[in-house]
């Protein structure tokens, strides 16, 4: 564990609390892509199958994994049951088959072994790298977003960005090289946030509303 990874994980945690806060205080999930949230559940469940094998890393690791699975499922409940009327599927139109299919193929080509743990792990890494796309697509379609929603996306972007210095740090301080699958997918994932990040820094953090140029 190093400073960058810890900060990244805390940023990831913060993003979930921001999202829960947004849904519960506005009593609405308007502006949140249900499809992205479904993809996160799939990502966490397929990646953390090692929980079932009791291959223990640390209490931190186990608690965080359980939290990510639990909170992501809870968010689906909030969106689909509790605040269902505020969820507008007509603007959440990204076709997630186009993400799930290629990620499944990639995980069959690039993985660390043809086992029931490794293939889903690899799949989850590829899927996470593109899971935000339905959310960004929705933002693009509506052209604007509530400020709290942009804080949520920015916290996710910060989490991904912080994993990059984490890998650089690990490369120089540990002698077990680089996890190519995690790093390549991670860089792709971070790149997807660049456009959003630019508008977030130049508009939202200057006190303006998040609006895309016409």
């Amino acid at each position: 564990m190093n400073f960058f990874r810890l900060l990244g994980d805390l940023s990831h945690l913060a993003s979930i609390f921001i999202l829960l806060h947004k849904i519960q205080t506005t009593r609405s999930c308007r502006g949140i892509s249900f499809k992205t949230q479904v993809l996160y559940v799939v990502v966490f469940v397929t990646r953390y199958l090692d929980l079932l094998t009791f291959q223990f890393h640390s209490i931190y690791n186990t608690v965080m994994k359980l939290f990510f699975i639990g909170s992501s499922i809870y968010i689906l409940y909030l969106m689909r049951v509790r605040f269902r009327p505020t969820n507008d599927p007509s603007i959440d139109t990204f076709r997630i088959e186009y993400l799930l299919g290629p990620c499944a193929v990639l995980s069959l080509i690039f993985n660390y072994g043809y086992t029931w743990l490794e293939i889903p792990w690899s799949f989850s890494i590829f899927l996470e790298s593109v899971a935000i796309l339905p959310q960004l697509f929705m933002l693009q379609r509506t052209g604007e977003a509530e400020t709290i929603t942009t804080h949520y996306i920015a916290a996710l972007g910060a989490y991904r960005a912080l994993y990059i210095p984490n890998w650089i740090f690990r490369y120089f301080t540990e002698d077990n090289g680089v996890d190519a699958i995690a790093v390549v997918a991670g860089i792709v994932q971070t790149a997807l946030y660049v456009d959003f990040g630019w508008i977030y820094f130049t508009k939202v953090l200057q006190g303006q509303k998040f609006e895309l140029p016409a």
Binding site: D50, R170, N176, V178, D179, A180, V183
Partner: peptide
């Protein structure tokens, strides 16, 4: 050679 240190990350 592929390294799997991503496994201890979240």
């Amino acid at each position: 050679e592929a390294k799997e240190n991503g496994k201890d990350e979240l």
